[in-house]
């Protein structure tokens, strides 16, 4: 079994960086790559996933003593599916536009492996507050990657940022013309970025970037260590 930390600071560092569900765990790639064509929808789906993750982690932790280990997977899926439906209904009631745009992928959060992974590895062994905190941090980690990819793809693909902002905040548009809002930086985009290969490319660069930074940090630590040893030997 994976070693889990139960310290708030460590949980945050792990969820956001060291074992970020998207770029280290490579979980939930399907919605990640499919929805990240623009920033606003990415943020919407990321936040929806975040809420589902907190909710499902919390409930699974709450009933952890009642879960039989033989039936735990269907039980966890059931809790996750319920949480997803709750978020889906809430979005339909208050964020109808977002629901129209990311509709299919909201229902598909159920199949996002991040949720089952956190339930299985963490929530079913830990008290409620820790499980929910872990859900928050893993969800933020996922949101972070989703918005980064969404931002990059929208910027390079269409030359805009937050053009679909109306799905998150309804802008008072009396003509109802749905004029694209947000920043327009340049006109012709790089179409490849909007297509599926663009998503994979972005993802690849982000993973490479993370690994590069990690190696840099590790090298730095090693240098400090050798320096210390050298100083000790001199003494």
């Amino acid at each position: 079994m994976e070693r889990v930390s139960t310290n708030y600071k460590q949980l945050a560092a792990e969820g956001l960086w060291h074992r970020n569900p998207a770029i280290v765990g490579m979980l939930g790639i399907c919605p990640l790559l499919a929805v990240s064509t623009d920033l606003a929808t990415s943020i919407g789906l990321g936040i929806a996933t975040l809420f589902v993750l907190i909710l499902s982690n919390g409930v699974i932790s709450l009933i952890r003593h009642q879960i039989d280990s033989n039936t735990r997977i269907p039980v966890q899926i059931m809790v996750i599916a319920t949480a997803v439906t709750v978020v889906d209904l809430v979005l339909q009631a208050w964020y109808f536009e977002l629901h129209q745009k990311a509709g299919l992928f909201i229902a598909l959060i159920v199949t996002n492996c991040v949720l089952l992974a956190r339930a299985e590895v963490f929530a079913r062994h830990q008290p409620v507050h820790l499980a929910m905190y872990d859900g928050l941090m893993s969800g933020l980690g996922f949101l972070l990657v989703l918005t980064t990819i969404g931002g990059f793809r929208e910027l390079l693909g269409q030359g805009t940022l937050m053009s679909g902002i109306s799905v998150l905040w309804s802008i008072n548009d009396t003509t109802g013309n749905n004029t694209p809002a947000g920043l327009r930086l340049f006109d012709q985009g790089f179409l490849l970025m909007l297509m599926p290969p663009g998503a994979f490319l972005c993802m690849g660069f982000i993973v490479a970037g993370k690994n590069f930074i990690d190696r840099h940090i590790r090298q730095g630590e090693r240098q400090v260590l050798t320096a210390r040893i050298n100083v000790r030997q001199l003494n």
Binding site: V86, A93, W94, F96
Partner: peptide, 28 residues
């Protein structure tokens, strides 16, 4: 227990949908 949980989940969703249905209709 799983069956009981399924019933609880179902009831929760049913109630929530009942509460939100007017809002959903309005938004639509």
């Amino acid at each position: 227990r799983p069956v009981l949980l399924a019933m609880v989940c179902g009831l929760t969703l049913g109630y929530l949908f009942y509460m939100l249905a007017p809002h959903i209709h309005e938004s639509r």
